[in-house]
Computed example of a mutant assay.
Amino acid sequence: MRVWSDLPVGRVVRLDVDADAVALSLDPLPPGAPAILTYRPGLAELLDDARTVAGLVASVLRELDAAALALFPAWLPGAAGIDGPGGAGLRAVRSLALRRASSGEHYGPFLAELAERALAGGPSGFPPEVRAAGLARVLAGSYGRSAAAVLVHVPDGLGAGAQEVFVAGCEWLAQRAKAGVWLTGAPLDAVDRVPAVRPRLTTGPAGTGAPAARSRPSGAPAAGPGAPGEARTSGAQAGGAQGGGGRLGYPAIAGRPHPGSAAELALEAALARCAWASGRAWNQTYLPHPLAAPIRLDLLWERERCVVEIDGPDHRGAAKFAADRERDVLLQIDGYAVLRFLDVQVLTDIETVLRRIAQFLRGRRGTEG
């Protein structure tokens, strides 16, 4: 068996493991692994996109592009204070991008255009080959990783012709982007050139089998925007194990709400107006035991030992539900309270959510104001 850091990049392989176990093992992103994004195309969309290799590639590149734009400025050091194209904003990010490219592997004109589009929008003028390589480098750099990989969930119902186009598109992406393309889900019976590998998964807080000893938190928020947090989904699945704006999921960045989670963004916007909410840290990693798998916390007040979790639809599945209960127990043993809210509750009744968090924090602080 291979660990995530040993899986190949630059080629297509099939993961011979359960898809639910894979999802749990990637939350948070394993140390040493590439920056792993999750692509979940629906059958109808895939059949439409996969009529040609070029169509499939264009669809995936749109998703990767949207993720890179949403993660700005994590991949561009020095751009954190630039939030719009007004004034010298565009010139500033362009200068920062060219400076970054001059000392690394990035292609300067592409990185500069991407930085400008992160502020002002608009389509890319570069060909697919340049975009694939550039986006893979940007996404890897967002998490301080040396490479990127896309975990593709193959839907049921692809015919022989669609399977061939699908695999050819995945091979194009792997080769041009120098990224891993790892397949899970439905088998591809009509294509026999994709080798199977079996990664060694660590699932759940006690995934290594180590005894549940005294838990310890990760401490202060991880340094810098590139520190990995959890993965959330980018579209219909936002609020689940990954977050974003279509069919692509990507990890959160430690220290900030996930840009693809409407609930996290809404809660942070509300908390930013509350004096009592100081001391919070988003998407932190928590280690129950030195030999155990780390877990990722949506929102943490470490001094008050308060954890807030925002649960999307994926938390209702059996595997995720069981993992949530296990991690809650470990946190409670160490003196943490876990306050769970549905993402729909955050979006529709945020005042109740704020009131309950405030009540708990004030109780822990021994104050009423």
Results as ranks from 00 to 15, higher is better:
D27K: 01
P211N: 14
V138A: 06
A133N: 05
G55A: 07
R327L: 08
Y286S: 00
V194Q: 13
A136T: 15
E351D: 15
L297E: 01
A133Q: 11
K178H: 15
Q359F: 08
H289C: 11
R2V: 14
Q284L: 08
D27R: 08
R232V: 11
V181E: 03
A272K: 08
P28C: 02
G279M: 05
A101G: 06
D314Y: 10
A212W: 15
L96G: 02
S124A: 13
A281I: 11
P34S: 12
G279V: 10
L98P: 02
G185T: 07
D48M: 06
A174H: 10
A21Y: 06
G42N: 08
D314C: 03
A227L: 07
L299G: 02
G121M: 10
G161N: 09
A319I: 06
R11M: 14
G226C: 03
A275W: 03
G144A: 08
L139M: 06
A67L: 10
S59A: 15
D65C: 10
R365H: 08
V53M: 04
S102M: 05
E45K: 02
E230K: 11
P217W: 04
A74R: 12
H315M: 03
G255W: 11
A23D: 09
G157Q: 02
L98A: 12
V9S: 12
E116G: 06
E113Y: 05
G226A: 14
L46C: 08
A275V: 09
T202I: 12
A133G: 08
A241V: 04
A186H: 06
L342W: 15
D156C: 00
A272Y: 01
Y39T: 02
P155D: 11
I36F: 00
R356P: 00
A222M: 09
S95L: 14
P199M: 11
D298A: 10
H315D: 10
A66F: 02
G125K: 04
V17W: 00
L287F: 11
G204I: 01
W282P: 01
G89F: 10
L24K: 01
A162C: 11
P128D: 09
G144F: 03
T208N: 14
C274P: 00
L361R: 14
G89M: 12
T208C: 10
